[in-house]
Amino acid sequence: MNVLECRNLTKSYGSTKALDNVNLTLESGRIIGLLGPNGSGKTTLIKLANRMLVPTEGELLICGQKPGVETKKIVSYLPDRNFLPEWMNCKELIWMYEDFYKDFDTQRAVEMIRSLNIDHKMPMKKMSKGTKEKLQLILTMSRRAKLYLLDEPIAGVDPAARDYILHTILSNYDEEASILISTHLIADVESVLDEAIFLKEGHIMLHDNVDSIREKSGVSLDEHFREVFRCWEN
C-alpha cells in the first residue's frame, strides 16, 4: 500500500519554487531518507504532508487521502524545532497526547521517559536542549502511527544523543509503518535506511533502495550524496 504519494506536486513561495513537479510514491514498512542540502525542499514536502502548507499545483496523498483531520490521526510528525509548550511538564504532555491521539501508547512513553531519568514534574522550560529534543522524539515515536515524518531529528545534538535517537526510532516503530527521515547528516542515518530520496532545489534527483544505490555507485550512500551534490555545484 502507498503510504505517501505525490502527483505533479509543486509548491511556490512567490516566484520561488520550493518543490517543482514532484512525483513520488512511498510504500508502507520502509525507512526512507529524505536527503538534500539546506533549502532543497525537504521541510516543504513534510509540511505539505501535514497540511501546514497547501500545494500550489498537483496533489499529495497520505494512504489515499488528502492531508487533513483524518490523515493527522495516522501521521506522527516531529518538526525541526522545539514545538512543545514551555509551561507543560512530562506528565501534562503525556495527558495531552493521550487526549488527542487514540494511537498514543502511554506505557511506551512512560518507560522511555523513565529510562532517561526525566523528572515528570519538570516543565519544558527548565529542561536542557538535548532533553527537550529527546522528549519530543519520545512523544512522536510513542504513537502507533502509519507514517512518521521526522524533520531533522538528529541535527544539533551530540553524537551520543544521535545514537539514542536512532535507537529510539528503530526500536519503536511498527513494521507496517513507514518512517520518512529528513536530514543532511547522511553518514549517521545510512545504516538504518531502506530507501533514499535525493532532493535538490525542489527536484527529486534520485529515489532508490539504499543497497541498489551502493551497488550501482560502488560507494557508500554518504559518499555518493557528496559526489552527486558536488557535481551539481560545479
Binding site: M52, F83, L84
Partner: peptide
Amino acid sequence: DEGYLSFALPVS
C-alpha cells in the same frame, strides 16, 4: 513554534 503541534493535532 507551538503551531507545529497545534496544526498537527487531528482537529480542523
